[in-house]
Protein backbone atom coordinates (compact mmCIF):
# COMPACT_ATOMS: atom_id res chain seq x y z
CA UNK A 1 0.00 0.00 0.00
CA UNK A 2 1.13 3.51 -0.80
CA UNK A 3 -0.29 6.03 1.63
CA UNK A 4 -0.84 9.55 0.32
CA UNK A 5 -1.31 12.21 2.99
CA UNK A 6 -3.48 15.03 1.64
CA UNK A 7 -3.86 18.65 2.62
CA UNK A 8 -7.06 20.59 2.34
CA UNK A 9 -7.56 24.32 2.17
CA UNK A 10 -10.90 26.07 2.12
CA UNK A 11 -12.87 22.84 1.67
CA UNK A 12 -10.79 21.71 -1.30
CA UNK A 13 -7.87 19.38 -1.99
CA UNK A 14 -4.75 21.53 -2.39
CA UNK A 15 -2.79 21.63 -5.66
CA UNK A 16 0.25 20.08 -3.95
CA UNK A 17 -2.01 17.25 -2.74
CA UNK A 18 -3.22 16.53 -6.29
CA UNK A 19 0.44 16.31 -7.29
CA UNK A 20 0.98 13.93 -4.39
CA UNK A 21 -1.88 11.73 -5.60
CA UNK A 22 -0.42 11.71 -9.11
CA UNK A 23 3.02 10.75 -7.81
CA UNK A 24 1.53 8.07 -5.53
CA UNK A 25 -0.49 6.61 -8.44
CA UNK A 26 2.64 6.55 -10.65
CA UNK A 27 4.56 4.75 -7.90
CA UNK A 28 1.69 2.30 -7.37
CA UNK A 29 1.58 1.52 -11.07
CA UNK A 30 5.32 0.81 -11.18
CA UNK A 31 5.23 -1.41 -8.12
CA UNK A 32 1.88 -3.07 -8.78
CA UNK A 33 0.48 -1.60 -5.60
CA UNK A 34 -2.56 0.46 -4.64
CA UNK A 35 -2.96 3.94 -3.22
CA UNK A 36 -4.76 4.78 0.00
CA UNK A 37 -5.30 8.45 0.74
CA UNK A 38 -5.68 10.03 4.17
CA UNK A 39 -7.84 13.10 4.77
CA UNK A 40 -7.71 14.82 8.16
CA UNK A 41 -9.89 17.71 9.29
CA UNK A 42 -13.16 18.86 10.75
CA UNK A 43 -15.37 18.15 7.74
CA UNK A 44 -13.41 16.52 4.95
CA UNK A 45 -15.47 13.46 4.09
CA UNK A 46 -17.27 15.20 1.24
CA UNK A 47 -13.94 15.49 -0.61
CA UNK A 48 -13.26 11.76 -0.55
CA UNK A 49 -15.43 10.65 -3.54
CA UNK A 50 -13.56 13.08 -5.84
CA UNK A 51 -10.29 11.16 -5.41
CA UNK A 52 -10.45 8.82 -8.39
CA UNK A 53 -7.33 6.74 -8.96
CA UNK A 54 -7.16 6.09 -5.24
CA UNK A 55 -8.54 2.76 -4.03
CA UNK A 56 -9.41 3.74 -0.47
CA UNK A 57 -9.78 7.05 1.32
CA UNK A 58 -9.27 7.09 5.08
CA UNK A 59 -11.17 9.95 6.68
CA UNK A 60 -10.10 11.18 10.11
CA UNK A 61 -12.66 13.75 11.21
CA UNK A 62 -12.84 15.51 14.54
CA UNK A 63 -14.64 18.77 15.37
CA UNK A 64 -11.45 20.07 17.03
CA UNK A 65 -9.42 19.72 13.81
CA UNK A 66 -10.52 23.04 12.33
CA UNK A 67 -7.01 23.92 11.20
CA UNK A 68 -3.61 22.22 11.00
CA UNK A 69 -2.83 21.10 14.53
CA UNK A 70 0.69 19.68 14.27
CA UNK A 71 0.81 17.11 17.05
CA UNK A 72 -2.77 15.91 16.56
CA UNK A 73 -2.23 15.41 12.83
CA UNK A 74 1.12 13.68 13.49
CA UNK A 75 -0.50 11.30 15.96
CA UNK A 76 -3.24 10.41 13.46
CA UNK A 77 -0.77 9.78 10.63
CA UNK A 78 1.55 7.75 12.88
CA UNK A 79 -1.30 5.54 14.03
CA UNK A 80 -2.53 4.97 10.49
CA UNK A 81 1.00 3.92 9.52
CA UNK A 82 1.19 1.50 12.44
CA UNK A 83 -2.23 0.00 11.67
CA UNK A 84 -2.08 -0.16 7.88
CA UNK A 85 1.66 -0.86 7.37
CA UNK A 86 2.09 0.99 4.06
CA UNK A 87 5.33 0.43 2.08
CA UNK A 88 5.60 4.11 1.22
CA UNK A 89 4.08 7.23 2.75
CA UNK A 90 4.02 10.32 0.56
CA UNK A 91 2.96 13.84 1.57
CA UNK A 92 3.18 17.24 -0.12
CA UNK A 93 6.54 18.97 0.45
CA UNK A 94 4.82 22.15 1.54
CA UNK A 95 5.59 23.92 4.80
CA UNK A 96 2.76 22.07 6.51
CA UNK A 97 3.57 18.76 4.83
CA UNK A 98 7.23 18.90 5.83
CA UNK A 99 6.33 19.93 9.38
CA UNK A 100 3.84 17.07 9.67
CA UNK A 101 6.10 14.39 8.21
CA UNK A 102 9.09 15.46 10.34
CA UNK A 103 6.90 14.95 13.41
CA UNK A 104 5.66 11.59 12.11
CA UNK A 105 9.23 10.46 11.35
CA UNK A 106 10.36 11.52 14.83
CA UNK A 107 7.47 9.65 16.49
CA UNK A 108 8.15 6.46 14.53
CA UNK A 109 11.94 6.73 14.63
CA UNK A 110 12.16 6.62 10.83
CA UNK A 111 14.13 8.45 8.18
CA UNK A 112 12.37 11.03 6.02
CA UNK A 113 13.41 12.30 2.60
CA UNK A 114 11.85 15.73 2.05
CA UNK A 115 11.17 17.57 -1.21
CA UNK A 116 11.72 14.65 -3.56
CA UNK A 117 11.62 15.25 -7.29
CA UNK A 118 12.07 11.69 -8.59
CA UNK A 119 11.69 8.17 -7.27
CA UNK A 120 13.75 5.13 -8.23
CA UNK A 121 12.42 1.90 -6.81
CA UNK A 122 14.07 -1.33 -7.76
CA UNK A 123 11.13 -3.32 -6.38
CA UNK A 124 8.27 -2.99 -4.01
CA UNK A 125 7.40 -4.99 -0.96
CA UNK A 126 9.46 -6.16 1.90
CA UNK A 127 12.26 -7.54 -0.26
CA UNK A 128 15.82 -6.27 -0.41
CA UNK A 129 14.97 -3.77 -3.11
CA UNK A 130 16.86 -0.55 -2.95
CA UNK A 131 14.90 2.67 -2.65
CA UNK A 132 16.53 5.77 -4.00
CA UNK A 133 15.02 9.18 -4.42
CA UNK A 134 16.24 12.41 -5.92
CA UNK A 135 15.63 15.37 -3.65
CA UNK A 136 16.16 19.06 -3.75
CA UNK A 137 19.27 20.57 -2.10
CA UNK A 138 20.17 24.26 -1.86
CA UNK A 139 16.55 25.17 -2.62
CA UNK A 140 16.76 23.28 -5.92
CA UNK A 141 20.17 24.50 -7.13
CA UNK A 142 21.49 20.99 -6.66
CA UNK A 143 19.85 17.59 -6.65
CA UNK A 144 20.82 14.88 -4.20
CA UNK A 145 20.33 11.19 -4.77
CA UNK A 146 19.61 9.47 -1.48
CA UNK A 147 19.16 5.85 -0.50
CA UNK A 148 16.57 5.29 2.22
CA UNK A 149 17.34 2.45 4.61
CA UNK A 150 14.46 2.67 7.10
CA UNK A 151 11.00 1.22 6.42
CA UNK A 152 8.31 2.20 5.74
CA UNK A 153 9.67 4.81 3.36
CA UNK A 154 8.63 8.34 4.33
CA UNK A 155 8.75 10.98 1.61
CA UNK A 156 7.53 14.45 0.81
CA UNK A 157 7.11 15.62 -2.76
CA UNK A 158 8.65 18.87 -4.00
CA UNK A 159 5.76 21.09 -5.13
CA UNK A 160 5.57 21.55 -8.95
CA UNK A 161 8.06 18.70 -9.56
CA UNK A 162 5.39 16.38 -10.95
CA UNK A 163 2.37 18.01 -12.62
CA UNK A 164 -0.95 16.72 -11.31
CA UNK A 165 -3.07 14.81 -13.79
CA UNK A 166 -6.48 13.32 -13.31
CA UNK A 167 -6.42 9.57 -12.82
CA UNK A 168 -9.35 7.56 -14.09
CA UNK A 169 -10.92 4.94 -11.94
CA UNK A 170 -13.95 4.02 -9.91
CA UNK A 171 -14.98 6.03 -6.91
CA UNK A 172 -12.79 5.04 -3.95
CA UNK A 173 -13.97 3.14 -0.90
CA UNK A 174 -14.29 5.33 2.16
CA UNK A 175 -13.21 4.25 5.62
CA UNK A 176 -13.90 6.47 8.60
CA UNK A 177 -11.32 6.55 11.38
CA UNK A 178 -12.05 7.69 14.88
CA UNK A 179 -8.93 9.36 16.15
CA UNK A 180 -8.39 9.50 19.90
CA UNK A 181 -6.82 12.80 20.77
CA UNK A 182 -5.79 14.14 24.14
CA UNK A 183 -5.02 17.66 25.41
CA UNK A 184 -1.30 16.98 24.85
CA UNK A 185 -1.83 17.01 21.09
CA UNK A 186 -3.33 20.48 21.28
CA UNK A 187 -0.53 22.25 23.15
CA UNK A 188 0.67 23.66 19.81
CA UNK A 189 -2.20 25.27 17.95
CA UNK A 190 -3.14 28.53 16.31
CA UNK A 191 -4.58 30.86 18.93
CA UNK A 192 -5.41 33.70 16.60
CA UNK A 193 -5.33 34.57 12.91
CA UNK A 194 -4.27 38.03 11.86
CA UNK A 195 -5.20 39.15 8.36
CA UNK A 196 -2.70 41.41 6.67
CA UNK A 197 -3.68 44.11 4.25
CA UNK A 198 -2.38 43.50 0.78
CA UNK A 199 -0.74 46.46 -0.84
CA UNK A 200 0.05 46.48 -4.52
CA UNK A 201 0.64 43.41 -6.64
CA UNK A 202 2.53 40.59 -4.95
CA UNK A 203 5.87 39.30 -6.19
CA UNK A 204 4.50 35.83 -6.76
CA UNK A 205 1.53 37.08 -8.83
CA UNK A 206 3.14 39.82 -10.90
CA UNK A 207 3.69 39.16 -14.64
CA UNK A 208 6.79 41.35 -14.55
CA UNK A 209 9.19 41.57 -11.63
CA UNK A 210 12.08 44.00 -11.34
CA UNK A 211 14.77 42.94 -8.90
CA UNK A 212 17.50 45.04 -7.35
CA UNK A 213 20.72 43.82 -5.78
CA UNK A 214 24.01 45.04 -4.38
CA UNK A 215 24.51 47.26 -7.43
CA UNK A 216 21.60 49.48 -6.35
CA UNK A 217 23.73 50.69 -3.44
CA UNK A 218 20.95 52.33 -1.41
CA UNK A 219 17.28 52.31 -0.49
CA UNK A 220 16.96 55.55 -2.47
CA UNK A 221 18.03 53.86 -5.71
CA UNK A 222 15.05 51.48 -5.51
CA UNK A 223 12.80 54.46 -6.31
CA UNK A 224 13.88 54.26 -9.95
CA UNK A 225 12.95 50.57 -10.01
CA UNK A 226 9.53 51.55 -8.61
CA UNK A 227 9.18 54.13 -11.37
CA UNK A 228 10.20 51.59 -14.00
CA UNK A 229 7.67 49.14 -12.52
CA UNK A 230 4.85 51.67 -12.77
CA UNK A 231 5.74 52.35 -16.42
CA UNK A 232 5.57 48.62 -17.16
CA UNK A 233 2.05 48.29 -15.76
CA UNK A 234 1.47 45.43 -13.39
CA UNK A 235 5.08 45.00 -12.29
CA UNK A 236 6.39 44.34 -8.79
CA UNK A 237 9.75 45.26 -7.30
CA UNK A 238 11.84 42.65 -5.50
CA UNK A 239 15.31 42.48 -4.03
CA UNK A 240 18.22 40.21 -3.21
CA UNK A 241 19.32 39.12 0.26
CA UNK A 242 22.10 41.72 0.21
CA UNK A 243 19.51 44.45 -0.34
CA UNK A 244 17.16 43.22 2.39
CA UNK A 245 20.01 42.60 4.88
CA UNK A 246 21.08 46.21 4.28
CA UNK A 247 17.54 47.37 5.01
CA UNK A 248 17.20 48.89 1.54
CA UNK A 249 14.00 46.86 1.22
CA UNK A 250 11.87 44.86 3.69
CA UNK A 251 12.52 41.12 3.91
CA UNK A 252 9.09 40.49 2.36
CA UNK A 253 10.54 41.79 -0.93
CA UNK A 254 13.33 39.21 -0.97
CA UNK A 255 13.50 36.83 -3.92
CA UNK A 256 15.49 33.67 -3.29
CA UNK A 257 15.96 30.49 -1.31
CA UNK A 258 14.95 32.16 1.95
CA UNK A 259 12.48 34.57 0.35
CA UNK A 260 9.87 34.48 -2.40
CA UNK A 261 9.99 32.02 -5.29
CA UNK A 262 8.72 33.91 -8.32
CA UNK A 263 7.64 32.77 -11.78
CA UNK A 264 6.80 35.89 -13.82
CA UNK A 265 6.81 36.18 -17.61
CA UNK A 266 9.75 38.55 -17.32
CA UNK A 267 12.28 39.17 -14.57
CA UNK A 268 14.50 42.22 -14.92
CA UNK A 269 17.53 41.76 -12.66
CA UNK A 270 19.35 45.03 -11.94
CA UNK A 271 22.74 45.09 -10.28
CA UNK A 272 22.38 41.45 -9.28
CA UNK A 273 25.47 39.26 -9.51
CA UNK A 274 23.50 36.03 -9.63
CA UNK A 275 24.29 34.23 -6.35
CA UNK A 276 22.76 30.80 -6.50
CA UNK A 277 20.52 31.49 -3.48
CA UNK A 278 18.95 34.32 -5.44
CA UNK A 279 18.71 32.42 -8.72
CA UNK A 280 16.70 29.55 -7.18
CA UNK A 281 14.07 32.16 -6.36
CA UNK A 282 13.75 33.43 -9.94
CA UNK A 283 14.72 30.42 -12.08
CA UNK A 284 11.07 29.76 -12.98
CA UNK A 285 10.80 33.15 -14.71
CA UNK A 286 9.97 32.68 -18.40
CA UNK A 287 12.56 35.24 -19.46
CA UNK A 288 15.33 36.92 -17.50
CA UNK A 289 16.87 40.22 -18.54
CA UNK A 290 20.00 41.15 -16.60
CA UNK A 291 21.59 44.57 -16.30
CA UNK A 292 25.02 44.44 -14.69
CA UNK A 293 28.25 46.35 -15.13
CA UNK A 294 30.37 43.23 -14.63
CA UNK A 295 30.36 41.21 -17.85
CA UNK A 296 31.71 38.25 -15.88
CA UNK A 297 28.86 38.24 -13.34
CA UNK A 298 27.29 34.77 -12.99
CA UNK A 299 23.84 36.24 -13.71
CA UNK A 300 24.78 36.36 -17.41
CA UNK A 301 25.13 32.58 -17.44
CA UNK A 302 21.54 32.26 -16.27
CA UNK A 303 19.83 35.06 -18.20
CA UNK A 304 18.15 35.23 -21.62
CA UNK A 305 19.06 38.85 -22.31
CA UNK A 306 21.98 40.83 -21.01
CA UNK A 307 22.87 44.51 -20.92
CA UNK A 308 26.37 45.29 -19.72
CA UNK A 309 26.72 48.63 -18.00
CA UNK A 310 25.93 50.80 -15.03
CA UNK A 311 22.29 50.45 -14.04
CA UNK A 312 22.40 53.97 -12.57
CA UNK A 313 22.75 55.26 -16.14
CA UNK A 314 20.78 52.58 -17.98
CA UNK A 315 17.63 52.51 -15.84
CA UNK A 316 17.05 56.33 -15.92
CA UNK A 317 17.65 56.30 -19.69
CA UNK A 318 15.18 53.42 -20.04
CA UNK A 319 12.60 55.28 -17.93
CA UNK A 320 13.02 58.41 -20.09
CA UNK A 321 12.65 56.38 -23.28
CA UNK A 322 9.56 54.53 -22.01
CA UNK A 323 7.97 57.87 -21.06
CA UNK A 324 8.76 59.22 -24.51
CA UNK A 325 7.38 56.14 -26.25
CA UNK A 326 4.26 56.12 -24.10
CA UNK A 327 3.70 59.84 -24.58
CA UNK A 328 3.98 59.45 -28.33
Amino acid sequence: MILAILETAKQAISEASWETITAACDLAQKTNDSVTALLIGREVRALAPTLSGVSTVLVAEDPQLDSYIPEAFAKIVSEVIKQKSPQIVLAPGTETGNDLMARVAARLGLGLATNCTEFHLTRSGEGQGEVRVTRSNWGGSLLEEVEILSKPILLTLQPHAIPAHAAAGPEPAIEALSPTLTAKEFRVRVKELLRSEKKGISLTEAKIVIGGGRGLGSAEAFKMLEELASLLGNAAVGATRVATNNNWRPHSDQIGQTGAQIAPDLYIACGISGAIQHMVGCKNSKKILAINKDAEAPIFQRADYGVIGDLHQIVPALIAELKRVKGA
Binding site: L143, V146, D304, I308
Partner: peptide, 20 residues
Amino acid sequence: PQLVRKALKKPQEGRQLEIL
Protein backbone atom coordinates in the same frame (compact mmCIF):
# COMPACT_ATOMS: atom_id res chain seq x y z
CA PRO B 1 22.06 6.43 9.29
CA GLN B 2 18.62 6.04 7.73
CA LEU B 3 19.40 8.20 4.70
CA VAL B 4 22.61 7.77 2.71
CA ARG B 5 23.74 10.19 0.01
CA LYS B 6 24.66 8.45 -3.24
CA ALA B 7 25.35 11.43 -5.50
CA LEU B 8 24.95 15.14 -6.04
CA LYS B 9 24.14 16.57 -9.43
CA LYS B 10 23.31 19.87 -11.07
CA PRO B 11 19.87 20.29 -12.60
CA GLN B 12 19.54 21.14 -16.28
CA GLU B 13 19.64 24.84 -17.07
CA GLY B 14 18.56 25.90 -20.48
CA ARG B 15 18.98 29.58 -21.25
CA GLN B 16 20.83 31.09 -24.18
CA LEU B 17 22.19 34.55 -23.48
CA GLU B 18 21.62 37.31 -26.00
CA ILE B 19 23.59 40.48 -25.26
CA LEU B 20 21.42 43.49 -26.08
